[in-house]
Design a protein around this nucleic acid. Structure first.
Lengths: 336, 336
DNA sequence: AAAGTTACCGGAAACGTTTCTGAAAACGTT
DNA sequence: AACGTTTTCAGAAACGTTTCCGGTAACTTT
């Protein structure tokens, strides 16, 4: 590829490169006529400024990096759309990288983005481990950082989270109200705050209603995980009365296995999902699920980042907690 | 952010910057000992090479841009995963941008990526329009380009496509075999080759079995589109016996509307989807759908791009056609 | 021991910008 | 007409690399 540069224009018009540069950055002194002349010639020649060169001298890129664990579930894509909407409005470009649920890849992604001089980073963790020291380092170096959804516990950075405690509590209580006693709790890796909060919600709902809690299992957030767990339960002949699943994908995986094995849902086993996907309303039985404001989450994260970008230096980490909703459907309601 | 540079290392060790550079690019002459010395010091100081500076001088970035129309359906994310796998192996980074089904945004995305000196571009079109001249321009300027899935017709570039003709034909024939006559055809915008091919397949299947074709409708690829169409059909009281939908999202949207309105599927209306998603097997009724090798598509696109990157200059555009499979499920089979 | 090779490294230019410094030109003031 | 101000621009340094060119020192060869 051959690019037209500022020098080409300068030569063509017998002006200095600095003058051409000024024409494009109207904050400097330049006669309106020469400015017009340059802009006209530039567009004739098909000139486009080279952001790489600009980054190098300005030491900033107008790029924001977003790192997500996966994009098989529509959750993260939706968050990204929300963030993009806000960031585009402020002339930031968005670079997306996905870590495939691997902490190592996550760090590599973060480093590549930092090396490429992104002005800030929006991150959802693939897990908790040796990535945290690196993020500590970044905050010390004043790199603007916002975590969302899967956030670390002890890092001083802005965060956008969902009120997992509250809605795990409500979802559990809903199952209890429906008369279910032996409720299996499934959540993501134990070191995610998200999992801890849900677990507390689950526990407290049981406490409130003075019934003993059921079994607890950690797993990932994919359909495969749900399938795996359901198969294990069946082979151990240890079937709970109800399940609070890690997310919809997990729930749907379980539903399929149980249905295939002849269990009736919700009569034999009730199921509640999390992070409602579009599918919840379409599968059979329709799935009760906790709905999360994905789009809003992206917007909020972007806004927190913009704040940091604007007040360079002084920055008080904030945590925004978003509310949700429990959509009750067939998978958890026994008509009697 | 303060970065450690090659100069800092040079000063620290009393060597020239060129020597430090050589230490990192082992193709040059450098004494193994000094090389070790430099590498050791560099890692002590936490040096990381600045890709921006490197891009500027090398006029290449080791970045590949991928542009997709949307990522609500899992189709595109899966393709990306496939492409990433190959590209990572060859030390390329992947930058993902999504056009939100807008041609204008698509061009803006392409331009941003080109400005950022990506070495190549993998693209799936949001539509056909004034984006094509720009892609023509890019091919003339020797920018390596690979289109996939939604590809342009008259551009000399490598392409990876699905055998839409064949599988639209088979899917239609399947419906005919099941005894359905009045088959509605739904596909994406008419200017996509993909739509034309499917339409031909649909037409030819009818020709083969000597029955007249049904109505044809163009729409987008989202669930909303399916909902919209189904509602229209119902309000016009013009219900076909079967539907070949643009994709699973569209099919699922229709299924919901029809079910809510009291229609029985497949008895009252049979439905076949396209680009099978994970959901096909989980909704009720389970959805007959044409399965596409998404992951393979990404890999193939990446490989075609790598070829271009390697044989700089001479490059014969290739088109890879991938095969698929029809997964027959409840939504199209009437048990009698 | 002189000449020719080779191994290693320093210096500097280059990539395409921005931005600082200072100078010329135009203008206004007395 | 001399001076001060303002406007407009040219020149050059800088950002962090790579890479070309040339030079010195060491080693081979005769």
């Amino acid at each position: 590829m051959k690019y037209v540069t500022i020098k080409d224009i300068a030569k063509e018009l017998n002006v200095a490169v600095s003058t051409v540069s000024r024409a494009f950055n109207d904050k400097y002194d330049i006669k309106p006529e020469t400015r017009e002349r340059i802009l006209k010639k530039a567009s004739e020649m098909g000139y486009r400024p080279n952001p790489i060169a600009r980054k190098l001298v300005q030491q900033r890129s107008y790029n924001i990096g977003i790192i997500i664990p996966e994009f098989e579930n529509s959750f993260f894509p939706q968050v990204i759309m929300g963030a993009q909407e806000i960031l585009y409005q402020h002339n930031y470009q968005v670079l997306i990288m996905q870590s495939n649920e691997s902490i190592d890849l996550e760090i590599r992604n973060a480093k590549t983005l930092v090396d490429n001089m992104v002005d800030g980073l929006i991150i959802s963790l693939s897990g908790v481990g040796n990535n945290l020291p690196y993020y500590e380092e970044l905050t010390e170096k004043k790199m603007p950082l916002v975590f969302f959804n899967r956030v670390p516990e002890n890092i001083e950075a802005s965060k956008v989270v969902f009120d997992d405690y509250k809605w795990a509590f409500f979802a559990t209580e809903h199952l209890i109200h429906q008369g279910f006693k032996d409720i299996l709790f499934i959540s993501g890796a134990d070191d995610l705050i998200l999992s801890k909060n849900r677990r507390r919600g689950y526990d407290d709902a049981h406490k409130k209603h003075r019934i003993p809690t059921g079994k607890k299992i950690n797993c990932g957030f994919s359909m495969k995980d749900g399938v795996q767990i359901a198969e294990n339960l069946i082979s151990q002949n240890n079937i709970p009365k109800a399940v609070l699943a890690a997310n919809d994908a997990c729930a749907i995986g379980m539903i399929r296995v149980f249905k295939d094995s002849g269990f009736k849902i919700p009569e034999d086993i009730a199921i509640v999902g999390f992070s409602e996907t579009k599918m919840a309303a379409h599968i059979s039985p329709t799935l009760t699920s906790v709905e999360q404001p994905t789009y809003e989450m992206g917007k909020a994260a972007a806004q927190l980042l913009l704040e940091q970008l604007q007040n360079k230096g002084i920055h008080i980490p904030q945590t925004i907690v978003l509310n949700g909703r429990l959509n009750v459907r067939e998978s958890s309601v026994v008509l009697s």
